[in-house]
Simulated assay, not measured.
Amino acid sequence: MDFRHLGSTGLIISEIAYGNWLTHGSQVEEETALACVRAALDAGITTFDTADVYAQGRAEEVLGRALKGERRDGLEIFSKVFWPMGEGRNDKGLSRKHIVRGVEDSLRRLGTDYLDLYQAHRFDYTTPLEETMRAFEDLVRQGKVLYVGVSEWRAEEIERALRIADEMGFDRIVSNQPQYNMLWRVIESEVVPLCEREGLGQIVWSPIAGGVLSGKYKPGREAPAGSRAADPKHGHFVAGLTGNEALLEKVQQLEPLAAEAGLSLPQLAVAWVLQNSNVSAAIIGASRPEQVADNVQAAGVKLEADLLARIDEVLGESVKRDPALTVSPENVRGR
């Protein structure tokens, strides 16, 4: 495993992180989830990412049990807050009330007394950003949170948070967690330049595009049994990609390029995002331990410029680049 600093901070994290968005407490049985975490630890992964809303708290609980007994100082545990965790008017968003309650619940479920990174899971248009930033600052001062980050924020939203922190003397946010892969590059034109300038690192999710860049979805064929696309609960997350026959054809054309580099297609996809120097870590998920063992082989891989150019040539207009595609929900008021 190779390691990188989280942005310009002193925190060192594994450049491949393990995440449990659609797996723990939902897609796979706990025994398999525990085996996947063990495979991650055995491979040298020290950074684990989750969120309160994943399986409505169950993902945090499973991860807490999986990491029990590990040396806490040797791990970096990340979680997030924003999405509804109940039916109450204040059970969502980035108000002080929801943030304070959210971190206490996450710490309990994870079985730890602090989080290395606590992230605002989306931007909240209904709460003053100053209130949100002060609540996060208080958690840092209390030692419950070491660093604060955001997820899927636009460049102008990140910049506002940085300016408020500077004006009010708060610790700055240090990271952003966006979707980023060969097919989804919407952070490159605005978010990445801002973050490079201001010292934030990207902790990217879906480097394999929900499994689409693994090559397992073949054009004209049914989704493989046990895959995300075949899952009635989670298939909609990748339906727009797996239903695109032209795109699946292009993904198949990446297979020989991966082979030339001595990589599997999933390894190529993970290695591709790690070529971006603003990326601090790529989050992988897994429904089987073997997937973890395969994906981590992308750590430390250097891809040649010619190979990167040929990938772009194959994918062509299938790549999404418009920064406006980073969307924060505007319907969370409900108060």
Rank of each mutant, 00 (worst) to 15 (best):
D171F: 12
H24Q: 09
T126I: 10
K144G: 10
E76C: 15
P256D: 01
G88C: 07
P289T: 05
Q177M: 14
R96D: 10
L200K: 11
E196D: 14
V296D: 00
I283K: 00
E196Q: 14
N90D: 15
L248M: 05
K250N: 10
I208D: 13
L11E: 06
A55P: 00
E196H: 04
G235H: 06
R96M: 04
F136N: 01
S175C: 09
V62G: 01
A33V: 08
S214K: 01
L248I: 09
N244S: 09
W184H: 10
W83N: 09
A299Y: 05
A309P: 09
H24W: 13
I45N: 05
Q179R: 13
Q252M: 07
R172N: 10
A135E: 03
G285Y: 05
Q267C: 05
V279A: 07
L248P: 10
A230T: 11
G220Q: 08
A120H: 02
A209V: 03
C195T: 07
T23P: 01
L303S: 02
G220I: 11
G149S: 11
R172Y: 04
E317S: 15
A39W: 00
E249S: 10
E260N: 05
T127M: 03
A43E: 02
A282N: 12
V204C: 10
L146Q: 13
S151Y: 00
L11V: 15
L183F: 04
Q291T: 09
R221V: 15
G240E: 12
A120K: 00
V150M: 10
V28I: 15
V314R: 08
P266D: 03
S189H: 14
E188D: 14
L129F: 03
I16Y: 10
V53Y: 02
G210F: 08
L315N: 03
L257I: 14
E159H: 10
L263I: 08
G25M: 02
S8A: 15
F170L: 10
R122D: 13
L303T: 02
G19H: 01
I284T: 11
L67I: 03
R65I: 05
G88W: 08
Q253N: 12
L265E: 03
Q275I: 07
P219E: 00
H98C: 02
V148D: 06
R321S: 14
G102P: 02
Y114P: 06
K80D: 01
A55S: 12
Y147C: 06
T326C: 13
Q267Y: 07
E245K: 12
V273W: 03
G243V: 01
V37Q: 01
N295F: 13
N276W: 06
V273K: 01
L94N: 04
G74Y: 06
N244G: 07
G7M: 04
E190F: 13
N276K: 15
R122T: 09
L315I: 11
K216H: 14
S79P: 12
A35N: 08
E157Q: 15
E104F: 08
G300S: 01
L274E: 02
R141D: 09
E15S: 07
R321N: 13
L129I: 11
H121D: 01
I13P: 02
I284K: 11
G316A: 07
E255I: 15
L241T: 00
A229W: 03
